[in-house]
């Protein structure tokens, strides 16, 4: 056990925890966050994505000790039902989900990508999403929602 400090969605938490615990379990079980999801535990699907110091990270196979002191944003930290982020708003407008389990990884990956590439083409957006899995295959709507959010964010 060791003391780990995480700054998650603007709140600082100090935890006494097995430092090899993957970040995902800390977020889900110690901090009670629902955004990041367990999909594969192997870094293959993107369901567990969080933003660590501005970069997307797959939290399922990232030991928590690696992110000690880091600033972490989860889907909850992006926006709220009352004040959604443009991406969240666009996903609602496009009704871009079926079961919704993948949304965490899809939206956060798109967020980091659009922040860096505000002028991205549809082709580039598609490319950026090429490591994310949605087994309900809501692809068409999701890509449309990301394109819609890009316009909104460029304003």
């Amino acid at each position: 056990m060791s003391a780990i400090t995480l700054k998650v969605n603007g709140q600082t938490h100090t935890l006494d925890i097995d430092p090899t615990t993957p970040l995902l379990y800390v977020l889900n079980d110690d901090l009670g966050l629902r955004g990041p999801k367990f999909g594969c535990g192997l870094g293959q699907c993107g369901a567990c994505t969080v933003i660590v110091n501005g970069r997307t990270t797959r939290s399922c196979d990232r030991p928590v000790k690696d992110v000690d002191g880091a600033e972490i944003t989860t889907l909850e930290g992006l926006g709220t039902i009352e004040k959604p982020h443009p991406l969240q708003k666009a996903f609602i407008e496009e009704q871009a989900a079926q079961c919704g389990f993948c949304l965490n990884g899809v939206i956060l990956t798109a967020k980091v990508f659009l922040d860096r590439n505000p002028k991205a083409s549809e082709q580039e957006i598609q490319q950026a999403m090429s490591r994310i899995l949605c087994r309900c295959f809501t692809n068409t709507r999701m890509l449309r929602a990301i394109a819609r959010a890009r316009k909104e964010m460029a304003r």
């Binding site: 990041p36 889907l75 909850e76 039902i81 959604p84 969240q88 989900a97 949304l103 939206i107």
Partner: peptide, 9 residues
Amino acid sequence: MPSMVTGQF
């Protein structure tokens, strides 16, 4: 949909 996209669901 709103609760799903904001991680509340």
